[in-house]
């Protein structure tokens, strides 16, 4: 089997004048925990739905484990488990039967389907609700259930579209544990989320998408390193005006009540030189606090830059 779980080239999809996917090139490695970040309308769900056949692409190619999602749709879909953002569950049957049916659609015989359904419900912690219909589950249980349905076919690629949207902290952590365990066992995870912290905490790499395009792909730490940190420096005798600091990486210096606030790329590398320069100028440093750039700030900057670029290009 190919080492790539997902590979898209020049993937395009438009809805009338709206370009939902605009030549997307993306690769996700086998076994990777991959995050997809982007503002609303960035094309994340369209991309996911293209992989599972709910959206027909206009052009380009998309492959799952080397199988084209249209020409080899059966092989591609057999390897995917999808937990969508919107609930799309069969309301006619108790949830255990819904899982048995889903396993059957994947060609799993009835005995094995029942065993897997039980295992999936136990994994997400709602086994005692097995005879209940989906509509009667609480919001959190519904989220657990769609994850169970994605797991029941034992997929090689688990796609989670906003899996923790609107759930409480405890459930979020429970879901993270389950997803992490799946990934440790070798399942490739594709996660879209609005919670930057979630991507920071879970993902090996994240892609930032905007307007149907890939803006950036990197490890969360790598992306954060590209952001600017803030160094709060407490001085024994704060100056009235900002001093000139000729230190590499410093981009901005502002006076605060206690001293200075310095904006710099790579705060921890910049701090020693900064202290030396301040002492050379006769200041006494009494405290120093480095606030790292968050992925959220980097995300906002990247998507803003992309939009400004698009506007200028237009």
């Amino acid at each position: 089997m190919t080492e790539l779980a997902i590979r898209t080239r020049e993937l395009r999809k438009n809805y009338g004048d709206v370009q939902a996917l605009d030549g997307l090139d993306l690769t996700v490695d086998r076994g990777e925990f991959f995050g997809l970040l982007g503002p609303n309308g960035a094309g994340k769900t369209t991309f996911i739905n293209t992989l599972v056949g709910l959206v027909k692409k206009n052009s380009g190619t998309a492959e799952v484990f080397g199988y084209d999602v249209e020409d080899d749709y059966r092989e591609a879909r057999d390897r995917i488990g999808l937990a969508p953002q919107e609930f799309n569950v069969d309301r006619f049957f108790p949830i255990i039967e819904v899982l048995e049916h889903k396993a059957g659609y994947h060609g799993i015989g009835s005995e094995e389907a029942s065993r897997r359904a039980e295992e999936a419900l136990k994994t997400v912690g709602i086994w005692e609700k097995r005879d209940t219909r989906f509509d009667w589950l609480s919001g959190g249980m519904k989220r657990r259930f769609v994850l169970a349905r994605a797991l029941v076919s034992n997929p090689d690629l688990l796609i989670l579209d906003e899996p923790t949207a609107g759930v409480d902290v405890q459930l979020r952590h429970d879901l993270w544990d389950i997803i992490n365990r799946m990934n440790d066992e070798g399942t490739t995870i594709l996660l879209t989320t609005h919670y930057i912290e979630e991507a920071e905490r879970l993902c090996d790499r994240v892609a930032i998408m905007d307007s149907g395009r890939k803006v950036e792909v990197a490890a969360p730490d790598e992306l954060m390193a590209r952001g600017t940190d803030t160094i709060d420096i407490g001085l024994a005798d704060p100056p009235r005006t900002a001093p000139r600091l000729d230190v590499e990486g410093v981009s901005e210096v502002a006076v605060t009540d206690d001293g200075l606030s310095v904006t710099a790329a790579g705060g921890s590398q910049t701090a020693p030189g900064l202290m030396r320069e301040l002492e050379r100028q006769g200041h006494t440093v009494i405290s120093l606090d480095i606030r790292r750039a968050s992925l959220e700030e980097v995300f906002v900057n990247l998507t803003r830059d992309d939009r400004e670029f698009a506007e200028v290009s237009a």
């Binding site: 599972v52 057999d78 999808l82 609930f87 076919s153």
Partner: peptide, 12 residues
């Protein structure tokens, strides 16, 4: 109700 998607996204 979108639940036909469970069939459509399967390898059937």
């Amino acid at each position: 109700n979108d639940y036909i998607q469970a069939v459509l996204t399967s390898p059937m």
